[in-house]
Design a binder for these strands. Structure first.
Lengths: 191, 191
DNA sequence: GCCTCCGAAACGAACGATCGTTAGTGTCCG
DNA sequence: CGGACACTAACGATCGTTCGTTTCGGAGGC
């Protein structure tokens, strides 16, 4: 669809990721597009719209990535794929992911709660994987799945701060998963 | 020392944590203290000063917490204590930790690089623990310590988003560590 | 005990700059 | 001709900061 409008959104996401929502002015955004700031209002109603759009993109991307995971696989395998999926989204849409994780709280009114709910739903999908896994025996039966899912979600949510754009995230996710699966214990570690 | 100045810093940290640096105006800060905004400049030279001070507090707290870990313990035990130490700082000084992790990039000039270096040094101290642990046999000799330390630092750096103030962080850290040490693998997990 | 002086703190008003947003007009293309 | 796009100009609000003045409690000299 409209090329100009999507260019605007893309540039807004870039700047929001770099300088934060409140740290980015409409004027700077206009300058980055080579246009007077008033002109932007032919495309948007408010600055908030741009943030909202960025958040929507992020939400959609993360959920769709999870959707692509086949149901019939064992839970441990689905956790590995979920980690892959998440890191891939972060790496392929680094700026969208950054805004999604970091700037959502600057949404105003109902929109803030909408995305808080979206984030909670996303995390709940991870939580379900661990619960299922423990119940099915794919994960240790004495597993503290609350802590385990928190560990994975932390790695996922923090990834935008260090993931280089275009990295091989599948291999990285597998390395994370390998540690998570078998631990780091050495032969001389006291228990 | 000067009560008023430290009240100012404390309130600034609180607001920066809640609304972000750019999302907090000097006027709001003054109103929270029951004072005209111009009056704040009897105590500070600029808004940046307040951010800088918050960052300094955070940096000091995190490093001091690591300093208290005895050298003579096995590396795996020191990792456990480091995780405890970090989570304790986050929980006891949640707002300082939030600003330290989230707002450091709004420091201007040399100060930004100063804290980037501080953060890198802090992470390097964690990295060293994993390296030592692997070399000493306290951790698996085939350990991917790059990934392992990233996992732990992710959990540490993300903690401010979900840690309730005043939680029992020692127990929580131990639960994280237990998973990290022995993994989550179940009896029916394919390898 | 009174007076004076000082330093810390806050006051109120204003500064120029920038903020997000609106409005009316113009241009170019299909 | 219409619609997408951009222009210029301006709006009121708010931004961080400066300034000269005022208030006030306590220390020190008389």
């Amino acid at each position: 669809m409209s090329t100009r409008r999507s260019e605007l959104t893309r540039e807004a996401v870039r700047l929001f990721a770099e300088r934060g929502y409140h740290g980015t002015s409409i004027g700077e955004l206009a300058k980055a597009l080579g246009v007077q700031k008033g002109s932007l209002y032919a495309h948007i109603d408010s600055k908030q719209d741009l943030l909202y759009e960025a958040m929507s993109e992020g939400s959609r991307a993360f959920h769709e990535a999870l959707d692509a995971i086949p149901d019939h696989l064992p839970a441990s395998e689905r956790i590995r794929l979920a980690l892959r999926a998440h890191l891939r989204v972060v790496s392929e849409q680094l700026e969208v992911a950054t805004v999604f994780v970091r700037e959502w709280r600057y949404l105003e009114g109902d929109r803030a709660e909408e995305f808080l709910a979206e984030r909670r739903r996303y995390e709940e999908r991870f939580r379900a994987l661990f619960r299922e896994g423990r119940e099915a025996g794919a994960l240790r039966t004495d597993l503290d799945d609350q802590a385990a899912v928190l560990l994975v979600l932390s790695a996922a949510n923090w990834a935008y701060t260090w993931l280089p754009e275009g990295a091989d995230t599948d291999e990285l996710a597998d390395r994370f998963f390998a540690i998570l699966l078998d631990g780091i214990r050495g032969y001389s570690t006291p228990s």
